[in-house]
Nucleic acid binder design. Sequence first.
DNA 1: CAGTCGATTCACT
DNA 2: GTGAATCGACTGA
Length: 213
Amino acid sequence: MIATPDRTPLTREFFNRPVLEVAPDLLGRVLVRTTPDGPIELRLTEVEAYDGENDPGSHAYRGRTARNEVMYGPPGHVYVYFTYGMWHCMNLVCGPEGRASAVLLRAGEVIVGAELARKRRISARNDKELAKGPARLTMALGVDRALDGADACAAPDSPFATLTGTPVAPDQVRSGPRTGVAGDGGIHPWRYWIGNDPTVSPYRAHTPRRRRT
DNA sequence: CAGTCGATTCACT
DNA sequence: GTGAATCGACTGA
């Protein structure tokens, strides 16, 4: 007899905690994405915390702007931004409201809807690569700016329902410096991942762009 | 208003 | 391992 997985959606209160507490607690949780073609479910294996205006790596470091507005709003909402002229990255806003903290979803394992995800991830060589990296993750899920500000706690009406699933055992959680974050933002070990999980993306230090001639 | 660069990915050597 | 792709947000003058 197989145990019934817990499908209770995470509540607003779950996200209304300090981001350093929420981030590791998201590992192992399952994100459900509802699309017209069917559901995609992603088990989160890698995340990063960004903590407000005092965090040099955060989009909120230089204060409130049109782009980061959602980070200042209530927890449990989705912050999506566009970067490198072609990619989207997705965050979950944490508490308390006004602190502008959020968790970047960096990687996960597609456990339902791999067929749909493969169509959006043509260059993926295998299923472990479907959501191995923050921009790959949004591609696999079909997430873009249209979802910026969406409520992730409004299941089942929301395009998302973040489920409890089974949080990964604490002794499986690893942490280290955040990937690709420039300067002083690299000092905080606020990247969290599941040890030995094959869907976790490789660490890369920030690489300054070569100057154009 | 022009210059700079990004919480990245992919193709190629 | 290296470099290109590609554009909007942000910065500072």
